[in-house]
Write a protein that binds this DNA or RNA. Structure first.
Lengths: 330, 330
DNA sequence: CTGAAAGCGCTTACAG
DNA sequence: CTGAAAGCGCTTACAG
């Protein structure tokens, strides 16, 4: 613990005004060579670090990007967070990670908090439909992940969920599956509805009956997995909602003696690091996690710099990564 | 996007001074009933939210706790982060998650950044020994996780690593293992050295030869796992460094046709949510993740309130959670 | 109980 | 090129 030097201490030591010190630090105006030298020495001697709070009060920007997620324990979202943080840091921004705990009140509280802190933007994966009012009233740019482009958001970044659903389904069909069940996410999100559409289209094109059941995003889906096996006893392929749920689903299949991929094949979704560390390694639809996070951060950083959003709707491509939970015959 | 009301707008509308509005908001002094009413109405009408930046400039506190971790992808640390965030939020604090990427420069940059933001404290899992200088010069309380109580930290919170190492070893011995290998973490951390001591003591008491090899904290330890099997072909029990590394280790055992728990038993470490979702469910040493995070946050919050740290050294108890990667004979 | 004033620590027109 | 002054939006002694 020690007392911090202020700009006035530096000014006094260097024999100049605070304004001059500020100019040297920010490079906002020419300062005579000699004074620059004295100021730099004084900064060195005092260990002066500008108070960012005072600076943001004037600048009306705190170089903070808020990232609001329903759960910090969702690895996919955390991996996106890592990319946001990385892009932010490279540009002199910080990221505040806000865990809404799937609690609408906490989401609102965080939006207000970030506004009150002069944050420069918000990246959000909301699980709350009644946030419209808050977002409309929010003076900051709000970038949504995993949403259809609604007028209330400044921009939307997501991956191509339709193709993802399609790709996974076509792969299972290619593997010989004929009774494919989709574990369907909430249809109010594009991740849920678009994947479903991709799945249905692929099924129809191959003369296969689409089968599905509702599922939650939580990591532990053992209960609904058991339910699935009961409702669809002939299932030979399952599209999971995420890699984490695939892991939990696999556990149930194993317990019930259903061999993967011999009896039932599984395709996960997201492509988190874990997917390849599972035993067996998971076949999964890989979202461009790094790009999603970076782009979301970049949109906000550019908006601050240029005053306008460069691209409102952003859909990034997905790909299929084959592991050991599916097998192509022959 | 819309313009924000300021305290002066509220004051004008209510026909009082800014000081009075401030008093009503903060409850710092008595205000006549009638003016309170008018102020409240004006706040409602204008949608006024106090600017936290201006407030923190005066108060020299931004109600922010910084949490610096080597990697946001370390699930154990993220679960602790969830607890910190929760405790923080309940007390009107925010948490800034700082991902140091195992980069010492980034750690220093974040410490400076948090200082410049008037953060109220820092919780850190540093992987950098040369941080002493920065921490000594840091005007904020710094709570370390996973460190021996060094004089440079304001406080330390960790779980009982010695007992953890012991507990896991005794369990494997009880399960009949006689060639137990410890995947040993960096000895500069108490998590590494204390667990090792517990392991060695337990081995010695049972007349078993301690065996170990160095390992990293990264999730993917497949390479060192293969190395382990080569160096210790008779191994019948392995203490992993974490649950994540146990998962990766299991993958290698499976690939090499070593049956778990029949041929080799595994004990993980941490007790993250994932440990029970693995197939087979992992036997692991459970750290009190929730308590660790909450306590670390509480120490900082209390320090702000009372001006002093309530407890400098904090060691929390661990427990063993049995899964399917070990089996007690008979 | 209440307002005018000073101050938190910076930055930037403004005037020279 | 440079300093005195005003201002960012609050809070709190101070005086009444």
């Amino acid at each position: 613990m020690m007392i911090l030097a202020q700009i006035s201490d530096v000014a006094r030591l260097a024999g100049v005004s605070s304004a001059t010190v500020s100019r040297v630090i920010n490079g906002t105006a020419r300062v005579s060579e000699e004074k620059v030298k004295r100021v730099l020495e004084a900064i060195e001697a005092t260990g002066f670090k500008p108070n960012e709070i005072a600076r943001s009060l004037y600048k009306k920007s705190s170089k903070i990007i808020g990232y609001i997620v329903p759960s910090i324990l969702n690895v996919f979202l955390t991996e996106i967070g890592r990319a946001i943080e990385d892009e932010a840091f490279q540009n002199g921004y910080k990221m505040i990670l806000c865990n809404s705990d799937e609690n609408p009140k906490k989401e609102v509280a965080y939006i207000n908090m970030l506004t009150a802190m002069n944050a420069d933007g918000i990246i959000i994966t909301a699980n709350n439909d009644n946030l419209d009012e808050e977002i409309r009233n929010c003076p900051l740019p709000v970038v949504a992940l995993d949403k259809d482009a609604g007028s209330r958001y400044t921009a939307v970044v997501q991956s191509d969920n339709y193709s993802g659903g399609r790709l996974a389904t076509e792969h299972l069909i290619e593997c010989g599956c004929r009774h494919i069940v989709l574990m369907r996410g909430p249809q109010k999100y594009s991740s849920g509805s678009q994947r479903f559409l991709g799945y249905v289209d692929a099924c129809n094109e191959h003369g296969i009956q689409p089968l599905f059941m509702e599922s939650q995003y939580s990591a532990d889906v053992r209960e609904s997995s058991r339910e699935l096996l009961k409702r669809f006893p002939h299932v030979d392929g399952i599209l999971a909602l995420s890699d984490m749920t695939a892991m939990s689903l696999y556990k149930v299949l194993f317990e019930q003696g259903r061999k993967v991929p011999d009896d039932i094949m599984i395709v996960g979704y997201d492509g988190i690091e874990l997917s390849s560390l599972m035993t067996p390694a998971l076949t999964t639809v890989v979202q461009p996690i790094e790009e999603i996070g970076r782009l979301a951060a970049k949109l906000i950083i550019d908006q601050v710099a240029n005053g306008k959003i460069s691209s409102r709707e952003n859909v990034l491509p997905v790909s299929l990564q084959m592991g050991q939970t599916t097998r192509i015959p022959g």
